[in-house]
Design a protein around this nucleic acid. Sequence first.
DNA 1: TGTAATTTTGTAACGATTTCAAATTTATAA
DNA 2: TTATAAATTTGAAATCGTTACAAAATTACA
Lengths: 138, 138
Amino acid sequence: MDFVIEHLKKHGIKPSVQRVAIMRYLMEHCTHPTVDAIYCDLQSQMPTLSRTTVYNTLSLLEERDALSVLTIDSRNIHYDGDTRPHAHFLCRRCKQIFDVPMPQGSADEMPETPAGFKVEHTHLYYDGLCDRCRVEEN
Amino acid sequence: MDFVIEHLKKHGIKPSVQRVAIMRYLMEHCTHPTVDAIYCDLQSQMPTLSRTTVYNTLSLLEERDALSVLTIDSRNIHYDGDTRPHAHFLCRRCKQIFDVPMPQGSADEMPETPAGFKVEHTHLYYDGLCDRCRVEEN
DNA sequence: TGTAATTTTGTAACGATTTCAAATTTATAA
DNA sequence: TTATAAATTTGAAATCGTTACAAAATTACA
């Protein structure tokens, strides 16, 4: 079975045409797209797609933990179809978001969780200048 | 000299009445306020204060690294006058943001930085349920 | 004291997100 | 099948956080 449909079902989501398209977009792109990027890109294949559907679907996917919501960029929410633990880097110049490995020895080991809280998600964000922008900046 | 004015000068910011009031608010409250919270709370003492001034001032303070911008909550930007390294926890139920210590042995040691980037800031966010909400939830 | 530079202010515009009710599609039962 | 109910999608309008901008007020400087 299609890995996208499988992924949705695993998270208790009925795989409608729109949901599959949106989830597939997220799983096949490592661009950490915004709502608008997803909407505009899918528009060509699905002319009837509504912006509201993209919002609704992303909310549902978030609720069921089928994607990762990146709040690294204060100007826009970004989405990541890769839910495996990894950190992110936002370049303040080109605004691109890069995947970076989690720190410490074992690759995907999360930072130690704080006491007294029931931690459900951990996000590690860096910002600064990416390699290219570091060179290009005057 | 007043520690707020001192803080502003240290970051190359001319201490106007409004800037001092906003920076003082941030340094004396550990509530991680939003723009609106700052504006509404200062309103009573400074009736002529403009929302735009709060936005302008927070932008300036961010630019000069005189505060920390928290993007942990996708619904609202929060600000933190404490720029010492520490992590944050957002409760999904009561929406409160809590300070939590950075993980690892030495208290304020940041997670290792990724190669190939010029890292300027690091943010470690957790979300889930706080102690109180964990008990109260159904 | 006068002039320039900086800062603050309020209104209007903008853009992302939500609300909501109608239309469509899908599931269920006769 | 066909009828009916439930779920999903859609588009328009409303909402809300943020930005743009130009005028007013304040501060710095000669």
